[in-house]
Design a protein around this nucleic acid. Sequence first.
RNA 1: GCGAAAGUGGCGGAAUUGGUAGACGCGCUGGAUUUAGGUUCCAGUGGGGCAACCCGUGGGAGUUCGAGUCUCCCCUUUCGCACCA
Length: 895
Amino acid sequence: MALDEQYKPQVIEQAAQTFWQENRSFEVKEDPNREKFYCLSMFPYPSGRLHMGHVRNYTIGDVIARYQRMTGKNVLQPMGWDAFGLPAENAAMNNGVPPAAWTYENIAYMKGQLKSLGFAVDWSREVATCTPEYYRWNQWLFLRMLEKGIVYQKTGTVNWDPVDQTVLANEQVIDGRGWRTGALVEKREIPMYYMAITQYAEELLADLDHLPGWPEQVRTMQKNWIGKSHGVRVGFPHSIGEGGTLWVFTTRADTLMGATYVAVAAEHPLALHAADNNPELAAFIEECKRGGTSEAELATQEKKGMATGLTVTHPLTGEELPLWVANYVLMGYGEGAVMAVPAHDERDFEFANKFRLPIKQVIEGPEVAAIRRSLQGGITEHGESFDNLRNELRGLEFTPDEWKLWYETKYGTCIHSGKYDGFDFEQAVDAIASDLEAKGLGEKKVTWRLRDWGVSRQRYWGTPIPIIHCDACGDVPVPDDQLPVVLPEECVPDGSGNPLNRYEAFRNTTCPTCGGAAQRETDTMDTFVDSSWYFFRYTCPDATTMVDGRAGYWMPVDQYIGGIEHAILHLLYSRFWTKVMRDLGLTKVTEPFANLLTQGMVVAPTFYREGEDGRKQWINPADVAVQTDEKGRPLSATLTADGQPVVMGGIEKMSKSKNNGVDPQKLIEQYGADTARVFMMFAAPPEQSLEWNDAGVEGAYRFLRRVWLFAHDHRAVIAAGRGASIEPSALTDGMAGARRQIHEILQQAETDFGKYQFNTVVAACMKLMNLLPNVPDAEARGAVVAEGMSILLRLLSPIAPHITHDLWRELGYGDDVLDAAWPRVDEAALVKDTIELVVQVNGKVRGKVQVPAAADNAAVEQAALTDETVARHVEGKTVRKVIVVPGRLVNVVVA
RNA sequence: GCGAAAGUGGCGGAAUUGGUAGACGCGCUGGAUUUAGGUUCCAGUGGGGCAACCCGUGGGAGUUCGAGUCUCCCCUUUCGCACCA
């Protein structure tokens, strides 16, 4: 007994976890007679240790899984490892250990960490993507997609480090330079395999409307990413080289009459042709190749361009338009060429303004017409009349604001457009498209922003692409009976290219078709392939095919939980793979994730000192003391070790680079898993970012200890009251009031649980805990306290499973709170005789009145007007109307 | 640059979705217990004012009897941008 009275999380958590393990509490089987619930958290990359983001993600998932189980569902919650990827290669370069050994070691350690958090995971279904048993199905499906024409080959642009002679990931390019060598990175075109996700663009877009369980913002982001746009393909005839037509795509064909030049990407064939006898242009094109390939980098770089000296012909006016090469036009996007309408496109305007290209207004909307009227006869900042200005544009430089004032009109009426004058957007597009079509120089067209998915990676630690290159037979798919193509696990990358290229035993093979000597493809697959279907494999991890019938029971995932940073790529690729699998007859589901919860980041304060070289040295918050004023406002911070000041760097995402991480392991050792879980659920709602706070952790611990101590102090009371039936009408007013509050809190908690708003669920549990010691010492106290405690334990059990597991048994409620029935509100406990109404005068609160719950509006009005303060504010004024919101408030409108 | 969000006390956040702004927790202040530190317990805590009251949800306008919530403009911060996962 004496030992019991202290809250010792390490002891009870160990005992609870042993109980679950011995009883195989979380291993589940398909049961067609029970409603299933597939609860899935995004699997971790085995980086070495869990970070707080993991802990938060898996705690949210675990709370949902345990809650759904208590509502009676057959709940599957699996776990596995996204085990291929770049960090393993980087680790190998640093410490000489092969990526495989490093990865498996990390998995073993992190699995132990996950177990110590008490997650209700069915570990018998564990999957690691770096095992041949898993990735053989990446290869198998790749080959099926190749057969169906969904996988194909073409060239793609990569970041090339000329010193290390290797391809770099975008992450490895810093300010246009290789992260290890510091060399200027170049763009390089290499052959790659692609997955034709654009074949599914229409369906991927349309099905977003059938995902009501996804956050609106994620659906919008995906919609914009897919980017369906209706426009016109326009041809500009030219006589460059052997002559031909330069094609562009535009969504604004109504502005075609305002096109004043045409720009192509540096890699465009016409640009290359023009450069043949123009060294200056050739140098410029070379310059455009510098820098990385990421869209953000390309879009924010300074706009550069150079005239080719060549022209193309405007398809409608016959006018000759200058042909430019511009770094803001991308070869891999659309036609690699654009028509430029500086008057009605901000980027074109900026470019035209810089290079003094003509600007021709062809659209006028109501806003601009109004400005024109106001300026009529007036003088602009440039000292010229508006109409003169338009004629003089060629010689003037404009600020973007000036341009906006005169020309920015989204949609309007065509002007200066010959036969199209007076047409609106739709009429102009229709007329121009049909005129172009008649000349064979254009037609209406739908285009997509979405591009096909390049899956080839020039890296070692990934799924080998199952292709064999034979001099005689070409590129030959590896036959199914030779799968998997097993990745050798002993290589150690050194930063210069893919070690598989030098690994003869892997590379050299025989051609499956002719039997002659041949070479394996050494590129591996993008790791997004691994994560695009792992949720299928969990349902049948030992299947001898890619998936089997068990997937039919569990899929789709009922609740998917993961970081918002995956809102587009991972989720889109997974949706695509699921549809491909469906078309191959492997599944009936068309969307993998019915409901999606995108959790926020874990952030923490940062501190630093500036070194002599001006570099910031980041100091861990654990080593810093913050001084506050008497209201608790932070004033300054000092390093605990030397007492000298450090700079407060603001709140940032927990990261190694800012040295503001908190190690979950230390937290668990100090306070236990339940405290960690309660704090994480309490400090913020799941979708918002969560600010780490050591004092807040203490608060969570204090709360759990109070629960523990109260339960132990009131064992006898609870034992006596447990199971006793409560007759609401026989309770004293005080007791009925206490019981009503308990059920009101339960009602609120129920709603919040349904919304997955766990921070207020914890708040509800705290309120219950504050209430229970104050239940009046009267008849039926034991029964009410026992009821309240059983509600508290059940509400809390998904969040703090260990302490509630222990207390549920200790207090004699049952064997296992895991399968206890979810608490239900007793409507009879909620009944009130009188209610309090707020009385406002002209919208300001002036008083409160008690009225019978059944009072009608007239009686309520009467009561409101007799309130002393209200009467004072109404006195001498005319009551215009009285608004009564039943059960809420009365608003007296006076004048 | 493009796309998507967020902004409420000293801090994390709450607000039945248009109806009492600040639940719950942290911090802070005062008190009790303790040899002391810690723990625990009690009280207070948006700002101003003796008070009546006034002000207050990033800034500015608007709709409404009533706006943190709806509409428009602006500012700031965060996430994603196709080879980090």
